[in-house]
């Protein structure tokens, strides 16, 4: 009752990293609220997985095992969660903002009539005063999230409805083992009490790994490389930084012509025009044909060993140095400073 609950994603025989990150955050919230941390694990062949989950400070693990729970489909997972929450009445529920969490979370929140906040970047406990109703709410979950394409940050609360549900993207929270020797109570759910007859409406016919088409236009963060990046291998650094920041890799024509990167990534007069929130230009001189495709970006960061490179004139930040030295530092300090 009134605990913090984390839905653990289990796919391809593995618990998702984001679930461990949320358990770590959940432990922290449960300590502040003086309540227990519960984990949910739904799938097939779950033997022994409590040993992976317990060290994050989990008090109770609810396990549901059935071959129809894996691979994930929406409805049986929804039925389990909805009925379990009606029994257990958690105060906070956390899920990954993944393809699964963003499919399951809203369905569950609708069935329970409780609010859900998407893609939180911070979660804190705090009080709230409703001035109109003259009412003070103690220990609410502040769900802090970007919206409007990342142009604003909103703090969302659910004063009256429980559970307070939130999704968080992978990599936003830090994974912290609280006690490697910790063990947890395991409760096995009898799935037949939870499923509805209509829960198996979706049939999975096929699943396979397939790369998606490159489309840098919709990305709000672009890490772009020019001829100064020097090689295809060095572009790997740009890909690492981009994926860490949740962005895409762009390029100049010179970099494309040199074979460092695919043509679909070319920005400029004869490539795509982009207006991202952040454009990190690495080893790019800033010729007019390139600027035509990116000069409307909100924030431009230039990394160049030549202080006089034309791109620096339109950049908000100019880092003077070599791409191959600067990017590893950016990666390191991003990891150190992110929550």
């Amino acid at each position: 009752m009134n605990n913090v609950t984390v839905y653990c994603e289990f796919e391809e025989g593995k618990i998702a990293d984001v679930s461990f990150e949320l358990l770590s955050k959940g432990r922290n919230l449960a300590n502040q609220l003086n309540c227990k941390l519960e984990a949910l694990l739904f799938g097939n062949n779950l033997d022994g997985l409590e040993k992976e989950i317990a060290p994050y400070g989990v008090d109770i693990l609810f396990k549901a095992e059935d071959e129809r729970l894996s691979p994930y489909t929406t409805l049986p997972h929804t039925s389990l969660m909805v009925k379990l929450f009606k029994e257990q009445k958690p105060q906070i529920v956390l899920m990954g903002a993944t393809t699964i969490g963003r499919d399951l979370g809203p369905r569950v929140s609708s069935a329970l009539g409780s609010g859900l906040t998407a893609d939180c970047t911070e979660l804190e406990i705090g009080d709230h005063e409703d001035k109109k109703e003259k009412k003070i709410y103690k220990n609410l979950l502040y769900q802090i999230r970007p919206a409007f394409g990342g142009n604003i940050i909103a703090t969302i609360i659910n004063p009256d409805c429980r559970p307070q549900m939130a999704t968080v993207r992978e990599g936003v929270m830090r994974k912290v083992i609280s006690d490697p020797k910790h063990t947890c109570e395991v409760i096995h759910l009898d799935v037949k009490n939870y499923f509805n007859k209509t829960d198996f409406a979706i049939k999975i016919i096929e699943r396979h790994i397939e790369k998606s088409k490159i489309n840098i236009k919709n990305s709000s963060i672009i890490v772009a490389g020019g001829f100064g990046v020097g090689s295809r291998e060095n572009f790997g650094l740009l890909h690492r930084l981009a994926s860490l920041l949740g962005g895409e890799v762009g390029a100049t024509r010179a970099a494309v012509d040199a074979g460092f990167v695919e043509h679909e990534r070319q920005v400029g007069q004869t490539g795509v025009t982009v207006r991202p929130k952040v454009y990190i230009a690495c080893g790019i001189s800033g010729q007019i044909q390139h600027l035509a495709g990116m000069q409307e970006s909100s924030i431009i960061i230039s990394i160049n060993n030549d202080v006089n490179a034309p791109i620096n004139k339109i950049a908000n930040y100019v880092i003077q140095g070599k791409v191959e030295n600067v990017i590893p530092k950016m990666i390191r300090y991003f990891k150190e400073n992110s929550k």
Binding site: N151, I152, I299, N316, V318, Q320
Partner: peptide, 22 residues
């Protein structure tokens, strides 16, 4: 059920470009 408690605008522009050493 959800209420917006607070909204912060993100400040994008710094007045002049900042120079940073490696």
């Amino acid at each position: 059920p959800t209420k917006v408690k607070k909204v912060d605008n993100i400040v994008f522009q710094s007045k002049d470009s900042k120079r940073i050493e490696d």
